[in-house]
Amino acid sequence: MRRHHPFRLDLDAPMTRPITRPTLDTLQAGRAFAALVVLLFHVEITLALPQYLGREIHPVFDMGYSGVHFFFVLSGFVIMLAHGRDLGRPEAVSEFVWKRFRRIYPPLWIVLLAMLPLVLAAPAVNHNAPLDPLDLLSAFALAPALHEPLLSVAWTLRHEMLFYAVFGLIIWRPKLGLSVGAIWMALSAVLPWLGIDDWLRFFFTSQHLLFGFGALAYVALERGWVRLPRLTLFVGIALFTVTWSIPLLKLPLNGVIGNWAFGLGAALAIAGAAAVERGRGLRTPRALAFLGEASYAVYLAHLPIIYLAAEVIDRSAVLRGLPAPLLFWSVAAVSLAVGVAFHLAVEKPLLKRLPNRSPLRAATGGALP
C-alpha cells in the first residue's frame, strides 16, 4: 500500500521591485511549473490509493512533490526581488507585513471556510485529521502545527510564515535579523541529520534552506555573478531532472540530500532563466505567465477537487470502466480548471478590493516605534 504523502506552494507575493523590467515572466513560468507538478503528483497518488483505482497510472509524477521545493526557492528569490531594497528600513516593515498578509490569508480563509463543512461531513476528505477549536485557530492563523485539520496543502504556508518572520526581522533590524537567519539556516542544515522529533523538525527542516538558496540566487543575479546564464539554466534543469529521476530508477535518495539537490537545481534554473530574460533572450508563453498568476489559487483549490473527483469515479461503474490514463488527465484538467476559476472569480477580484498599501502605514506614517 502506498503512503499518501502529506501536503505540504506558495505562493509568493507580487513582484514589486523588478531587476530591470516591469515583470520577470520566467518567475511566473516557474510558479506554473511548480503548481502543475504538485497537482499531477496529487492526482497520481490519490487515484492510486486502494479505495480508488488501486494502481499506479503515471509513476513519473510520484516525484511531483518537488514542486514544493521549487516554490520555496522561488519564494526566497521573489521576496528578495520585491523587498531587498527595504533591508534596514524599519518604516518598510508594515508594508512588508501587509503585502504578505494580503497575498496569503484572504484567499486561504475562503478555501478554509469552504472546507470546514466538507470536513465535518466527511472527515476522510482531509485524511481524518483531528479537528478541534485550537486546530481551527491554528489553521486560519497559519501558526506552527504538526497536522492540517482542514486543508493538508497548507503546511507549506506555515513554513512560509517562518521565513517571512525572519525576513521581516531582517528588514527591521538587519544585524539581528541576519544573525537569527544564519542560525536558523545552520540548524536547519545540521539538525535533520540527528534524528530530531516532530516539533524540532517543523522549525528546522532541511527544506528551510531552500528559501536561502532562492535569496542567494537573487543576490548572485543582482551582483552579476551569473556570467553564463544559459549554461546556468541548463545545469539547474539537469540537476533538478536527475534528482527527480533517481527514485524512479529505484535508486536510494537521502531525504536531506534530495532537498538540497532539488533546491540547488531550482536556484540555478531560476537565476539562469531570469538572467536570460533580463538580456531579452527568453520569452514566456502567455498561457504559462497566466497560470503562474493563478498558481496560488490552483494550489489551494486543487486537492479537494481531486478527492471529490476520485469519489465520483469510485461510485460510478461506467467511469471505473474507462481507461486509467483518461481518468487521470480528466481529473487533472477538472482540478486545474476549478483552481483557475477560483483565481478569476474569487482571488483576483478580492485582491483588487484590498488596498495595495498597508492601512497601518497610512495611519502611522509607516514607521514602527
Rank of each mutant, 00 (worst) to 15 (best):
L303I: 14
R283F: 08
L194H: 06
A48K: 05
A345K: 13
A363I: 00
M161F: 14
T16S: 12
V93M: 10
V125R: 12
R223Y: 13
P18T: 14
L116C: 04
G168I: 03
A297K: 02
L350K: 05
N259D: 15
L74D: 05
V93P: 05
L137R: 07
V318T: 10
G366Y: 05
P123G: 07
R230Y: 06
Y218K: 03
L253F: 09
W244I: 03
N128P: 00
A345M: 14
V298D: 02
G195Y: 04
N128A: 10
L268D: 04
L216Y: 12
M15G: 06
A82K: 07
G339V: 10
G365S: 06
P323V: 09
S245K: 00
P252H: 11
R8W: 10
P247H: 09
A332E: 01
F234M: 15
L308I: 13
R85G: 12
A266R: 02
A165Q: 03
L228S: 14
H302K: 11
V73C: 12
S75W: 00
Y307Q: 02
L360G: 00
L87V: 15
H4A: 14
R85D: 15
F290H: 01
H58G: 08
V312Q: 13
L194M: 10
F140M: 11
H127N: 06
S75H: 00
A337I: 01
P323H: 06
N126Q: 01
A341K: 08
P130W: 04
S75C: 02
E56S: 13
V235P: 08
G292A: 05
P107W: 07
P130A: 02
L116G: 03
A48E: 01
F211C: 05
V318G: 07
L210D: 07
A186H: 09
D135H: 14
G168S: 07
L288T: 02
F328R: 08
G88I: 12
R357G: 14
P50E: 06
A124M: 11
A269G: 05
L336K: 01
G84M: 05
L36D: 00
H58W: 13
P252I: 14
W199Q: 09
L108I: 10
I257E: 13
R361A: 15
V312L: 15
A301Q: 13
A114Q: 01
L288I: 08
R17N: 13
R230W: 14
L39N: 02
Q207K: 08
A182F: 11
L249Y: 06
S66I: 01
G64H: 09
P369H: 13
T20G: 12
A82R: 03
V60Q: 09
R8N: 04
L187R: 04
Y218R: 07
L108C: 05
V97C: 11
M185L: 15
G292I: 09
L253I: 12
R31T: 04
A124K: 13
R103F: 09
F163L: 10
A289F: 04
L264Y: 05
W199A: 08
I45R: 11
I237M: 08
L336H: 02
F33H: 09
G88E: 12
S330G: 15
T16H: 00
I257Y: 13
K250L: 11
G181D: 11
R353H: 13
H83M: 12
V312A: 15
A309L: 15
L157D: 04
F101N: 07
L210R: 02
A274M: 15
L53W: 04
L27K: 03
G30W: 13
